[in-house]
């Protein structure tokens, strides 16, 4: 494994008395697509949420262990949580556009992170909308509410919104589960383009999607990491019996 972007060690997540994640050790390589694979309810999404500390939102959630990003621990730190979160763009299962117009959905993150004049803002908004190939579709109705877009367009808008704050990492939680096949394809293509500049983590339970996208795979089951490694080796030559069974479709 070349350079590791995120290093997770001995991570435990408790929710009330229930333990969701058990002693997770995993590494996420830089500028590659890492797929977290596993049957639903295995803790994939929770792991993703730990990485950007959205677990803070739940008063009952408790974390132990370390998550190092660029070698710096983000769990046990006094650093400003907002600047940590800004390093990571998040793409949810369904698009959740902010309750504003299309333009402001992109501009929101830019405005929050600092002052910016109107011309710069316009340029940046256009740039990121182009990056997700949405510009031509929406350039005439930037002031329309974002919810007026189709679901596929909304998801791309959410991707652009995340890119606009200039993250190094993209976290995607089953980003295509609510989309039609064509929109899914568009998103997947985007990921393949973006991995040149970003480290991408995708949570999915769709085996085919994992095969299509992954450079690196983390396979989880019942809150534990079962096996991880480069995609080729993982799919062609899994080491453990459980992984083999899963890849053959014996359990979901």
């Amino acid at each position: 494994m070349d350079h590791t972007k995120i290093n997770i060690s001995k991570l435990n997540l408790y929710y009330g008395r229930q333990q969701i994640l058990k002693d997770i050790n995993a590494g996420i390589p830089e500028k590659k697509i890492t797929v977290i694979l596993g049957p639903s309810g295995c803790g994939k999404t929770s792991l993703l949420r730990c990485m950007n500390r959205l677990t803070d939102l739940h008063p009952q959630a408790r974390l132990t262990g370390n998550i190092l990003i660029n070698g710096k621990d983000i769990l046990n730190t006094t650093d400003d949580i907002t600047s940590i979160r800004k390093m990571m763009g998040l793409l949810a299962q369904r698009p959740y556009p902010l309750p504003m117009n299309i333009y402001n959905n992109i501009a929101y993150g830019l405005r929050i992170s600092g002052r910016m004049n109107k011309r710069m803002l316009n340029k940046r908004v256009e740039h990121y909308l182009r990056q997700v190939s949405l510009w031509d579709e929406v350039k005439d109705r930037l002031r329309d509410p974002a919810v007026a877009l189709s679901i596929g367009q909304q998801q791309r808008l959410c991707l652009a919104r995340g890119l606009a704050v200039d993250p190094q990492i993209i976290l995607a939680d089953e980003p295509t589960s609510a989309l039609d096949p064509l929109s899914s394809q568009a998103i997947e293509e985007k990921f393949n383009e973006l991995k040149e500049n970003y480290s991408i983590v995708i949570v999915t339970h769709i085996l085919r999607q994992a095969r299509r996208l992954a450079d690196h795979v983390i396979f989880m089951y019942m809150g534990e990491v079962i096996e991880q490694g480069p995609a080729d080796a993982f799919f062609e030559n899994p080491k453990l019996e459980k992984t083999k069974l899963y890849l053959r479709g014996m359990f979901y």
């Binding site: 939102l57 907002t82 800004k86 998040l90 959740y96 902010l98």
Partner: peptide, 15 residues
């Protein structure tokens, strides 16, 4: 209001 909406905003670096 879905939690995902505040999550989206938080992950953009908002307090």
């Amino acid at each position: 209001i879905p939690t995902e909406l505040s999550e989206a905003s938080l992950s953009l670096g908002a307090t």
